[in-house]
Design a protein around this nucleic acid. Structure first.
Lengths: 215, 215
DNA sequence: CGCCCGGCGTGACAAATGTCACTGGCATAG
DNA sequence: CTATGCCAGTGACATTTGTCACGCCGGGCG
C-alpha cells in the first residue's frame, strides 16, 4: 500500500526479497507480516485478506514471492495462484492448514513453487521463502511422502462424478439430472463408492474422497 | 522451558507480564510468540501445541496470562481453560477462528477473562493481554453484540434431548430406545427442530444447535 | 471364436428419514 | 368456567436413500 520508492529499483534488485502475504485471518496475517519484516533480507510490500484482493495486490506490487493461504474466501489460494502466475512474473508459496495429497497435486498443476503446512516452524518459513526466491522449489517432505504413498484411488470415473456433486448438498434427483442419468444409477454409484470408502452416507463418502484429494 | 531466574521473582513482580501461548499450528504459535515477545512488558514463558500440554505447562510455569486457541486437539481451549483455572491462579484469553455466540457463553461459564476472534488486528492483541493482566475483562464487541442479539433458543426440552443424541450418528431407532419413546415421536421432535433451525437434515440441525451452544 | 471380467446403466425393493394430522395434559388469559 | 395456546406424544403417510439383481458393452485370453 505504501507508495513504491522512487522509480528505478526493480524487483530483481540485488538486496531484498519483495514479499506479498495473503491470509484471511487478520491476527495471523499481521503476525506473519511483522515477523517476516524482521528478516533483514525480506520486505513485505503488500498484503491481502482474500483471494481476489491478492490477485490485485500482486499485479500492483509485483512482488518476488507471494505467500498465499490456501483457505480464503473469494478465491482459494490455488485459484489465486493460477491467476497471479498468468499475469505476473513471480513465484508462489502455498500455506495450508489441511495438507491433503490431492491438494498438493492441484497446487503443483498450477505451477506453484512452494507448498508448506501451517505446522511448519516459523523459522523455517523465511528459509523456504529464500529458497523459492532463488528459483528453487520447496515441498514439505511429509506431504510429498504422503502424496507419493497414497494408494491409487479405487473409485471409478462415474463414481467420482457423482461424489463431486454430493458435496454441496445436492439431492440424488438433482445429481441425476445434472449427469443425465437415472436416479437409480446415481444411487448405485454412490452406494458403490460408500462401500469402497467404508462410509455410512454419501456425505461421509464425499468427505473422505475430498480428504484424499480424489475429487 | 528455560529455568526460572534465581529464586525470588514472583509472578506478580512489578514489571513484565508472564504469558503462555497454546495453539496447535506451529507457524501461528511461532509467529505469536515472536511477536508478543517484542513487546517490552510481555514475556512468553511457555507454549504448547495441544490442550493437555497447555494444562501441564500452565501448572509448571504459572504464567500471569494464558492465551489459548479454541480449536486444539486433545482438549479444546475452553476445557483446557477450565482445568487450568481450577489449579492455577491465572487469567485466560481465548482466541478463536469461528467466533459463535454459544461458544462465548460456554467460555464465560468457564470464567475466562478475554475472548477475541482471530480477525483481531495483531496490534490489538497485546492491548487485550495487558487489560486482562490488569484484572479487567475483554470481550470482542462484535461477538458480544451477536451473543446478546441472538434470540433465545427456540427449541423445546425434548427437542434438545433428541438433538443431543443426533450428534454422533445415532439412528432414530436408537435415540427412541434411549429416550423410551416411539420412533415417530423422536422423528417429530427432530423434524420440528429442523424447521425451527432451518436445517435440511437432523445432522445439520444438531450442528447448528451446537454452534449456538444450545446443546 | 467363446468366455469371462469389469465398468456403465437401469429399475425394483427395503429401510431410514422427514412431514402431517391428531390426541391429551396443563397453564393462563378472558 | 371456558377458550386458547403450547408442549408431549403417537401413528399414518410420502419422500429420500441405500441395496440388490440384472442387462449391455468392450477388451483381454485360452
Amino acid at each position: 500500500m505504501s507508495g513504491a520508492p522512487a522509480g528505478a529499483v526493480e524487483s530483481d534488485a540485488a538486496r531484498g526479497i519483495r514479499l506479498m502475504i495473503a491470509d484471511d485471518e487478520h491476527l495471523i496475517r499481521g503476525a506473519l507480516v511483522a515477523l517476516l519484516n524482521l528478516e533483514p533480507d525480506i520486505e513485505v510490500v503488500a498484503h491481502a485478506d482474500n483471494g481476489v484482493a491478492a490477485v490485485e495486490q500482486a499485479i500492483a506490487a509485483r512482488p518476488d514471492v507471494c505467500l498465499l493461504d490456501l483457505e480464503m474466501p473469494g478465491a482459494d489460494g490455488i485459484e489465486a495462484a493460477a491467476r497471479i502466475l498468468a499475469q505476473v512474473s513471480t513465484r508462489v508459496v502455498i500455506v495450508t492448514r489441511h495438507a491433503r495429497p490431492g491438494v498438493l497435486r492441484r497446487a503443483l498443476a498450477s505451477k506453484v513453487s512452494g507448498f508448506v503446512p501451517k505446522s511448519t516452524p516459523a523459522e523455517e518459513l523465511a528459509h523456504v521463502i529464500r529458497d523459492v526466491a532463488g528459483g528453487r522449489r520447496y515441498i514439505d517432505p511429509e506431504i510429498a511422502a504422503a502424496a507419493l504413498t497414497a494408494e491409487r484411488c479405487p473409485l471409478t470415473d462415474r463414481e467420482l462424478d457423482a461424489l463431486r456433486f454430493s458435496r454441496g448438498a445436492m439431492s440424488v434427483q438433482q445429481i441425476a439430472e445434472r449427469l443425465h442419468l437415472a436416479q437409480g444409477t446415481v444411487r448405485n454409484y454412490l452406494s458403490s463408492a460408500m462401500t469402497k470408502l467404508d462410509a455410512t452416507s454419501r456425505h461421509d463418502a464425499a468427505e473422505k474422497a475430498w480428504q484424499q484429494g480424489w475429487i
